[in-house]
Computed example of a mutant assay.
Amino acid sequence: MTTIETTSGWRAFWARGGWWRAVLLAVAYIALYIGAGLLIGALFGDRIDGDDVLSSPESLFFGLTSGVLIGSLILAAFAASLGWFPRLFGRQPIGGRWWMWLAPLLTVGAIVLRLFGTDYAAYTAGVIATAFVTGLFIGFAEEVLCRGLVVTMLRDSGKSEWVVMVLSSLVFALLHSVNILGGQSLLKVALTVVFAFGFGACMYLTLRVTGNLIWPVLLHALYDPTQFLATGGIDETHSAEPSALLELAAPANMLYVVLGVVALLAVRGRVGRSTSDGLEHAAPAQR
């Protein structure tokens, strides 16, 4: 009986949704992620190349992959404890407008250009393989958190889709603000946060227009590894000797911000508040 009551209380708490629960979850995740990173650094720091994390599969695994793997497991366990996987990866309760297709199309375009424009000879096969495996965990963790759990909690509390997009994108930007702890300059972190907000808004648009969380997960899972293989580092913004294809892909970051601004002006709609069992009791509006 105690176990049943505890489980019900746990689920009921998160089922109420709301912006502060969404932020609480994000902060808890960031704290656990940073803690995992510190532990990995203490145990395996000598295997990470601080000057070039992409220098070997081992360096990339302990420098990035292991952290997002742990983060993915934490979020998967959290979603499973709530029984939310069917909700997160089910059909979205609100559709999208035609212009929202610009978000996934922009992402696919950047991915394709980087896939064919990257100088793979600069890396070993192990680094390339590890990079794409890492991308899968990044896509899963960041999209399940921001476009899955956070979006669901905000909708459950009756927030408008404009608020859902803005707050979920701000949470996504918050995840990237922790780069400052890694020694990045304040200016670089600020630019990364601005881009992250725009990219987050575009992943929200992708969620809306495709109707399923799997598509933001997959696109994000391909976008990140193709970006850092193309640029030669994590959160780098340029390549030393970009090919013509990479030069064509370069404006993508700026275009995400532009499309994010458009979304701020155009996104409307509201999904009805959900009951504790996750069922909608109001017809969704869309625009």
Rank of each mutant, 00 (worst) to 15 (best):
G109D: 06
L105P: 14
V112E: 06
R87L: 10
R87C: 00
G117D: 05
M100W: 07
P93V: 01
T107C: 14
R91T: 13
T107I: 14
P86L: 02
I111M: 03
F85C: 10
T107F: 08
T118I: 12
F85P: 00
W98I: 07
P93N: 03
W98R: 15
G95H: 13
G117I: 11
P93I: 03
M100Y: 12
F85D: 01
L115K: 10
I94M: 12
A103E: 02
A80W: 15
W84G: 04
W99I: 06
M100D: 10
W99L: 05
L113Y: 14
L105V: 13
S81C: 05
Q92R: 01
R87E: 15
Q92G: 02
A79K: 00
R97Y: 06
F89L: 03
W98N: 09
W98D: 01
L88H: 07
S81Y: 03
L113W: 10
R114K: 12
W98Y: 11
R91W: 02
I111R: 04
F116G: 12
A103N: 08
W84N: 02
A110T: 00
W98C: 05
G109M: 08
L102S: 09
L88R: 04
W101I: 07
L82S: 04
G90Y: 05
G90Q: 09
L106S: 06
A110M: 05
G109E: 12
P104M: 09
V108I: 15
Q92N: 04
V112I: 14
W98E: 03
L82Q: 12
M100L: 11
T107W: 08
W99E: 06
F116P: 06
W101S: 02
L88F: 08
F85M: 11
L82H: 12
S81A: 09
A110E: 08
G96Y: 00
L102G: 10
R97A: 07
W101N: 04
I111A: 13
V112T: 14
D119W: 11
F85A: 14
P104H: 04
G96E: 03
T107M: 15
P104E: 10
T107V: 14
I111S: 08
W98A: 06
I94N: 02
L113E: 06
L102P: 01
L106F: 00
L82N: 10
F85K: 03
D119Y: 10
F89M: 13
L102M: 05
W99N: 02
G83L: 05
I94R: 14
W84L: 03
Q92C: 01
W99V: 03
D119T: 09
L113K: 15
G117Q: 11
M100R: 11
M100G: 04
L115I: 15
P104W: 01
W84A: 07
W98T: 15
Q92L: 05
T118V: 13
A103G: 08
G90S: 05
G90K: 05
P86M: 08
S81Q: 10
W84V: 09
L82D: 09
L102H: 02
V108F: 05
W98Q: 04
A79N: 06
L115Q: 11
L106V: 01
G109W: 07
G95K: 15
F89D: 04
L88W: 01
R91F: 07
T118H: 12
R91V: 00
I94V: 14
L106P: 04
G90T: 09
L105R: 04
R114D: 14
L88D: 00
M100E: 15
A103F: 06
L102R: 01
